[in-house]
Design a protein around this nucleic acid. Structure first.
Lengths: 344, 344
DNA sequence: TTGTATGCGTTATCAT
DNA sequence: ATGATAACGCATACAA
């Protein structure tokens, strides 16, 4: 372990003061260009690297942005992260990422860690059983911006980047109705999460607007993963009257559903028209191709990160709290899993 | 912005020395239990949080581990990350994650950032065009362990966690041969990456062992993504003689291939038997179900992280350089996309 | 344009 | 079991 070079070493070597070295390295304008060059060269030659701790200690700023997601191994979340990383990296920020594994407890612990790590800002997509967001108050108290994305607290008017889940679900349901469906099942996750609560709303509104009575037995709560798809399909098959439409809040689950339904001899879309959500790659590969809602994950990541970074400059404590929610556009993509009558 | 509480504030409040406070907070054994409790209580009550910068500055240790992956939005990589996060979080480490976007230049820049961030250790899966790993020497020089996973440098005897790609590809190819295939196409990525170079080897060995001549025209280099699948399928369709076997190094690409082939009226597996790689969810949902190699991403993440953390304690510079490569078991999962004769 | 002096909050060292 | 003091490496207010 060779000794770390400090600005003092460089200063001594060059016969200037540490201050000048510090300024030069930070590209301070009030340093002679030649001196600056000399210092840069020496730094490089001596293998100097800035000590971020000392720098942070002094400047009270890290260059780290914290991110808490429910799960890392989710195709949607990883798109979001990719978008965030791109923007953050370009802006010179590091990302500290952790997952709550859908546990509010773990989310709190992660938030605590982030807090202690003194991230400059925090981006959060909430765990499914998170009831309130008090564990982020510590950040707000210190003036550290917190921005929610995709899954925001359903009650509070928290700042966040989302899609209009109500509208998206409305459109999906309306599409099924237009295809002649009258008995539509909706599969969704925990309605503590805005995402699912809103979609349920959209589903109900669409039914209402088309004078189809809402039946709570047509709502199935699920983990929305691959295995759950099978269970749901079996549940459907065992119903006394088969539904004619199925709106699943996730492509992987919908795909798995379709597979099991097909194995049971049910025709898609003739017997049951199916719509998913997310526009995952799988929706384009399953047969029949899955009608779904395009969910702009990468873009959501970009937007959320850009927005957060924009707010890092100003010290106006809690500005973000009053900022409006940013809603990204989503889009229903109609494919054959729900198409009964050719639209001309 | 309320003022940060320091150990001095606590010390003053309680009439003890800052040293004692520091010790108590770090659970040092040589502190009276009652004093300790008193300090803990005061800290909590006063809203104290440890200043990691000051701590790091003094102790010369961050609790951060850097990770560089080619892409964040890859189902395999996100599984790996999930495994890593689990282990790291349990051990009290933070993860700083960045993506190289398959660019060696960006990888170098990211490595530089990680270096300056003074991560305690680094986990890397290389970009496809990375020719050498000299940009990680800075870490090794400082005694910071660097561990590669999945994609390791093909030439050097770099330490890493991998699967036996040669064997896996051998088994996949052998399986196709056993299904009666004699003209097998292999689709793979850049052979600068060990992963693909090794699989090509396995493919060749299997042919050799079954006395099928190797034909370089049967090797297709590709990006292995969804779009590429279509192109490959079209390339295959336009061949003067259709192959009877297809071994694609990635499930998403294989699935996309299958879809296009089917649309062209080619029957899977009767006309062409297809094998993928990764055991992505899609392999279980496409029709016919895709034969593939199970690639233990989550486990790979866990193992790599555990190993790295184990090495953080000892200061024996570069221990990792001599550690053997850790090879995880992968497994061929036979499904209907390649099954021509029912095995009884 | 450059330098001096000081503080950021912690932990290591040595002492008691 | 506790305390006094000195680093850790940098950035800034102030001085020149």
């Amino acid at each position: 372990m060779n000794k770390e070079i400090t600005i003092y070493d460089i200063a001594k070597d060059l016969g200037v003061s540490p201050t000048t070295v510090s300024r030069a390295l930070n590209d301070h304008p009030a340093v002679n260009v030649k001196t600056k060059q000399k210092i840069f060269d020496a730094a490089k030659q001596m293998g100097y690297r800035s000590n971020v701790f000392a720098s942070n200690l002094r400047s009270k700023k890290t260059n780290n942005i914290g991110i808490i997601v429910p799960r890392l191994n989710s195709s949607f979340q990883s798109s979001v992260l990719a978008g965030m990383e791109k923007v953050a990296n370009d802006a010179g920020f590091n990302l500290i990422i952790s997952q709550s594994l859908e546990s509010s407890e773990k989310e709190k612990a992660n938030a605590r860690t982030m807090f202690n790590s003194r991230v400059d800002g925090l981006l959060v997509s909430l765990a499914s059983n998170t009831e309130n967001v008090e564990h982020f108050n510590a950040f707000l108290d210190k003036g550290t911006p917190v921005l929610f994305f995709d899954r925001v607290a359903s009650n509070s008017g928290c700042t966040g980047v989302v899609i209009d889940n109500t509208q998206a679900a409305y459109n999906a349901t309306k599409h099924l109705i237009e295809q002649g469906c009258k008995n539509i099942i909706h599969v969704l996750g925990n309605t503590k999460i805005n995402v699912y609560a809103d979609r349920l709303k959209g589903y109900k509104y669409a039914l209402m607007d088309h004078e189809i009575p809402f039946n709570s037995k047509n709502v199935i709560y699920s983990d929305l993963n691959e295995e759950a798809g099978e269970d749901i399909a079996n549940k459907i098959i065992n119903k006394k009257t088969l539904p004619d439409g199925l709106f699943v809040s996730n492509d992987a689950c919908a795909a798995s559903c379709i597979q099991t339904l097909k194995q049971a001899g049910i025709r898609i879309p003739e017997d049951i028209a199916v719509v998913g959500f997310n526009n995952d790659i799988i929706s384009r590969l399953i047969e029949p191709n899955l009608t779904t809602t395009h969910y702009p994950g990468y873009e959501m990541g970009e937007v959320a990160m850009k927005n957060l970074i924009n707010h890092l400059g100003d010290n106006s404590k809690g500005v973000l709290q009053n900022t409006n929610t940013i809603t990204l556009r989503s889009e229903l993509i109609v494919r054959s899993s729900s198409l009964r009558q050719k639209t001309t």
